[in-house]
Design a protein around this nucleic acid. Sequence first.
RNA 1: GCGGAUGUGGCGGAACGGUAGACGUAGCAGACUUAAAAUCUGUUGUCCGACAGGACGUGGGGGUUCAAGUCCCCCCAUCCGCACCA
Length: 864
Amino acid sequence: MDQTTHESGAYDFSAAEARWQAEWEARNSFATADAPQGGRRKCYVLEMFPYPSGKIHMGHVRNYAIGDVIARARRAQGYDVLHPMGWDAFGLPAENAARERNVDPAKWTRDNIAAMKADLKRVGLSVDWSREFATCDPEYYGHQQKLFLDLWRAGLAYRRESAVNWDPVDMTVLANEQVIDGRGWKSGAPVEKRKLRQWFFRITDFADDLLAGLDTLENWPERVRTMQRNWIGRSEGAEFSIRLTEPCAGIESVPVYSTRPDTLFGMSFVALAPDHPLAAAIAATNPEAAAFIAACQSAGTSEAAIEAAEKRGFDTGLRVVHPFDPARTHPVWIANFVLMDYGTGAIFGCPAHDQRDLDFARKYGLDVTVVVAPKDDPGMAVGDVAFTGDGAIVNSGFLDGLAVTAAKSRAIAELEARGAGKGVVNWRLRDWGVSRQRAWGCPIPMIHCEVCGTVPVPEKHLPVRLPEDLPFDRPGNALDHHPSWKHVACPQCGAAAQRETDTFDTFVDSSWYFARFCAPHAPVPADPAATSHWMPVDHYIGGIEHAILHLLYARFFTRAMHRLGQVGVAEPFAGLFTQGMLTHESYRTEDGKWLYPEEVIRHADHATTLDGRKVIVGPIEKMSKSKRNTVDPSAVIARFGADTARWFVLSDNPPERDVEWTEAGAQGAFRYVQRLYRLARSVAADRADDVALERAEGAARTLRQATHRTIAAVTEAIDGFAFNVAIARLYELANAIAESEGRTAPGLAAARREAMSALIRLAAPIIPHVAEEANALVAPEAGLVVNQPWPVADPDLLKRDSVTLAVQIMGKLRGTIELPPGADAETAIAQALAEPRIAQLLAGATIVKRIHVPDRIVNFVVRP
RNA sequence: GCGGAUGUGGCGGAACGGUAGACGUAGCAGACUUAAAAUCUGUUGUCCGACAGGACGUGGGGGUUCAAGUCCCCCCAUCCGCACCA
């Protein structure tokens, strides 16, 4: 009896998984070289690296299982596969832990990495761990500082003022997620906007290219490309000045941007962003305006908060002159829905043809003039819905009668002729602010000298290391509070100077790690030869929540590095796959306390606690610690094994959708793993059969056909990331092998061995441990499964002996017929008409049309 | 508010415009067992009817087509993102 079989004959996953993981590690099965290997095609598989929270969760298991299936399948298919792993190790949680529990964020992070790595290793991933690094390694962030200096020298980084959320009680900058309903999450104090000098990357320099590049990303989900396109937000419009009737504080006119210059005659007001310079000038002498602006500032900086807020405005009393009609004047308002960061921070309002303007106009009783008349309703009156479609321009002087597009050009030409403005391309995309007032991040390698200004840290002094004794005893930036860290001599003049105490946004850390993985020990940030070989990432796998920011920043950063000659490609991710989230029922006691699933006994129609108290079963929601509806993968792996966990998270539904963890599903997965092993034992016990595979007949040939159909179907399904479909086909093959047991047919033993070998290799990317175990029973002479090639389907065995066609009358199914594949229309229709039931139903009716789709259907269209 | 997606049996889901419900899970009936678990066999969309057969059925409403889960239009619900969470 071998050591992984219980006395009962059951598969002992625990011993087997540890043994095969050790075996792969001892053989270095997943190590990859930086350079090309003998003409083998390369495949770079990368899952978004994790934040080291300390424990893996089921979302990680699913994310890494998806990547691992692809990596293992590609390896079997003959590719040279790069599949690395690392840690996105800077960020707020470590800092919060430091404050709350007085621990060193570095130690906290290192401990978390160690724990998570141990968890991940038990999942049995085909990862080349020799490439592992964490973004908090001084070596990594030192290279990042070098990259920043390169970007700065290339003019792609600069410093300017920008607003942050300021908590006036805790005296600290808040992240948007720390602002809840306009208040600080801890202090509860209303948040203020405050301007700080901050570092920015000039991502807008690449706006055009980032947009155009999307068209080349054929292996990205269309929805992600659409989201990025909308985010970049290219628009064509007009930028022009609108003259005030009287100057205000020396300001004579207001520049506005509009994508609808065709509706200029429908203008009824001008609206300024609350932080617009003219608004500030007005507020200086008008306390009411100042109060209104102050009220707007408390909303926080997030666009969602601003736009979801009720539209409010303040009439400044100023008026502007209409650019095309000096006789008309319009009021100037300050409005909370106008964004300073978009366009010029001021708009003209045309309520009839813009919903936000209309809502605003209705609220404050402003004029609504229709200037675009829909073709089917030329006399349209506007109620509460703005008309934004095409039509003919009316009430608009020289624009009258034109269509919208023509009117835009005409209006722009007129503005240019009058010297008032011009046609411009505008982008919604803003430059990327990377300064964070946080201590647990990559220090920005700059020094502020009173004499020399802002001076870069000399490269020989990189990395600028974080101090090991960060003081977290008071709010604010611990790096800034450190007694000595920031005080240095100016590298240029030697005078006393101060280090920049802001650190980088952690999105910077994750914007080039995939390039570093290609040569993780190179003396430069990215090794050009290694990145030229491995980049782009062929399959990048992660959550849909990263669809915009992370992916856009990484695309920008790669372009910047490419421009500087540091990586071989401009586009980092050739293929993208976005997975759904893990969800689970949530449970609470009657007094509202959240319960973990393991504290709950689930009955058929209700649930109780372990000691019998009533449990309220909540909706199925995204797993989160706060609701305690999490399932701990370590516990699942200990109970069922890694193979079961991997199989379940891939089997239940398409990977791009959310998956609900269910006990029943896990049990089902567990049964399959056991069943695979039992089948292998059964096949291994078959007596040899001297009939060759090629001469298999009857049940043996049927099994061979099933095997080869499964090979074709599973290969296609895995290529398309349809793991749930691949798994359904693997169930079918297992069923077919089980059915063949005890039967007799020429070549059946050989056919069963063939089927089992295919099943093992096809299932191996998903459940690699039991696949090795089964292989050791059935075909030990073939060597480890990880070194075996992917099975290939024999086209002859994919051919069907006969096909079933549906026979329809008026599109309704009325019967089926059996035909040889490829039968022509005449044969099919004749046979359909010969069916007694069809003939009966057609009797007395006139057939007006006969439709035949080869190997699919016959449909008769009849008249009674 | 804006942008993007999703919706099919009790549940997860499958389905080049061509037999809706593959496969799994749950349920029911049976075999094995002292018993339970495991395993195996059969069965299961709803309604009518006898297992023949029929009607209905893919979030709701309309349309295109010989034929619609699939294409088009409108609506509803849920989820993701919104620039300092990662």
